[in-house]
Amino acid sequence: MSDDLARGLRQLAKSAEAPPTVPGAEVRRIAVRRRRRRRTTAVAAGGTVAAALAALLTVNLTGGGTDDRPAPAASPAGTPATPAPADATVDVSRQVLVIDGRELPVSAGSKDAPTPSGRMTVTGKKSATPAPGEDLGVADARADAVKIPWVISLRAPDGSTVFIGARGYDEKAPGDYLGAPGWISLRSDDARWVYERLVEGSVVEVTGTAPTPDRASPSARPSTAPSLVATPTAAEAPTAAEAPAQVPAETVTPSAVVRTEPSGLREAGRG
């Protein structure tokens, strides 16, 4: 069997060999740009955190149930033992991200694909994930090359990964947008704003539960908001039987903090 396996694998590999689409010089250029960006981020970090703290003292944070939530000491290694003021908060109920005194509209979570709650730590940043010449091979049915700019990764209290990023595509279309599990999406400009203000180690607090179908109308949002079409999807009968116990919003007060079950999130998130 081993010989056949080796032969099969070699044929497989041979069939997929292809010259690079991006020349070596461009690869080096990307690397240099990245290093430069890392340096500027490190320099800006000091001022950013100080400004965020000052803003937090004046901003009324929702979900003030810090006492209701399980102690942060239970969170995995890496998150601070003594709770420091968060650098940004995400209120899933109101679908906003509050940072530096600004309220930015977001799409976060839906009934079938909730975003985990709690204090999270920024673990990394990527200004754009390049997808050069990406086409699909055998197994994947769809998906095209997509650039997702201004992505920040966070580690949630349960250890799962959450991302903040720009939606990047057709932001005006009200079409259906599934709140992807583990993603908090903003408009490109807003995503960039957040990206420039959070650094590795910044703390983001996520509270609230996804709103009910009644909030489907995008025009209800104050600014040019991303279409909140996570909600029409939630309006359908919840088919995901394994979806975590998300109670309808009318039985939960907006300021309550709800811990979502991590297992459901992981199932939904596995590509």
């Binding site: 994947d140 769809r142 998906a143 997702i148 990964t161 939904a268 998130g269 590509g271």
Partner: peptide
């Protein structure tokens, strides 16, 4: 994996 999932759910 997460990024891939996100790409897959977008109606592209």
């Amino acid at each position: 994996r997460a990024r891939r999932w996100l790409e897959l759910v977008r109606r592209t």
